[in-house]
Design a protein around this nucleic acid. Structure first.
Lengths: 209, 209
DNA sequence: GTCTATATCATGATAGAC
DNA sequence: GTCTATCATGATATAGAC
């Protein structure tokens, strides 16, 4: 898919990515990865000692896409609403380019949650800074008050879930019209932005608890 | 977990449910299911011919929980806002009781989307009726206008995603406080209802496209 | 119906030639 | 580095006694 150096190692990683993402760690077969890379199984073990290690290498490559630079966006100056819009745009843009990431990541984190620990350490994920930032905007009266976690999860849910549940949308909702699904995804950013803004902007008739 | 007739078949189904839900079809081992049921592998094959059939039987049991009676709620009389609130309550209630269903269902539907076909047929899932109903409420001016699919997916996203992404919430967001996660889930229904209502109720400053 | 023992097969991994 | 051939293991599935 992507243009890369076509060294054997890169071919393997590319093939492993495709197979692991669709089949998962448990469902993937080394033979299939070898076929996809146009080599044989022995070479896989020559470059990566085991299936486990090959998976970890692949997972590391993929996980980069799962956490865009939210912290970076949040910590710039400007109104919180603008930042939220930027985050939604960034996420939907990312997910349209890599639509299978959410399903894959959720599957594997559910299988082996301990992998999360490494990721948290590696990426230095610390959502507290983000939550504090949201809280500050609420205290300032920029948006209505609620637990920052709920607001953050609401936004991420609407961004990510439709991609993670792609088969359901594809078969149940947009059954008779394959192109409609892509159109739907393309509309998501604008829809979510408007939805969130309408929900959190302060008006007279809001009960601001 | 649940109280059931403790016939062998029920014990197997109960054990299979536990193992399949946590490990998935690919990751589950017949030996582990046998151990969990307190019997041996041969008996599994005596009752269910193959792992595939045992999985299907289990999946059928589980999938019942995944689609609550939305259609039923939608087709009663009353304002759309009330119905939306009822659906959110019903879903969150269900998910708190069966928190691992979303992850499991999404994993397996991603693995083998053809299974969806049977489900659609079996449950007679036809979202069109729901979308038409939403559209009608919009035309009547009860709520703001948008594609009904977007509204429906927005609501389902905020209900389901936090459960499907449970490991992430657990490890990243509520790392230092396990009980906080359960509290978070308990608050979801009220949060989502308010969020959705604020987003779709018509006010003067809405740009009603 | 339930068990032990075994067949059968697929898969991850290795040995060794080139 | 890359290949063919093979090993070792573990999993599904079956045979057959009780």
């Amino acid at each position: 898919m992507e243009t890369k150096k076509d060294s054997t190692e890169d071919k393997i990683l590319e093939a492993a990515k495709n197979v692991f993402v669709t089949k998962g760690m448990d469902g993937a077969r080394m033979q299939e990865i070898a076929d996809e890379a146009g080599i044989n199984k022995a070479l896989l073990h020559y470059y990566f000692r085991s299936k486990e290690r090959l998976f970890e290498a692949t997972f590391g490559e993929i996980i980069k896409y799962a956490f865009p630079k939210i912290t970076q966006i949040v910590q710039t100056d400007g109104p919180i609403v603008t930042k939220i819009e930027q985050i939604i745009d960034a996420y939907i843009d990312l997910l349209i380019k890599h639509p299978f990431i959410p399903g894959f990541v959720m599957k594997e984190l559910n299988r082996d949650p301990s992998g999360l620990f490494k990721i948290v350490v590696k990426f230095g994920l610390n959502p507290k800074a983000i939550f504090d930032h949201i809280q500050l905007a609420m205290d300032r009266g920029e948006i209505i008050k609620m637990k920052p976690q709920h607001l953050a999860i609401n936004i991420l849910s609407m961004c990510i879930f439709p991609f993670a549940a792609r088969p359901i949308l594809s078969f149940v909702v947009f059954k008779d019209d394959p192109k409609a699904l892509e159109a739907f995804y393309a509309e998501r950013a604008e829809i979510i932005k408007k939805f969130v803004i309408d929900a959190i902007v302060i008006r007279e008739n809001h009960i601001d608890t």
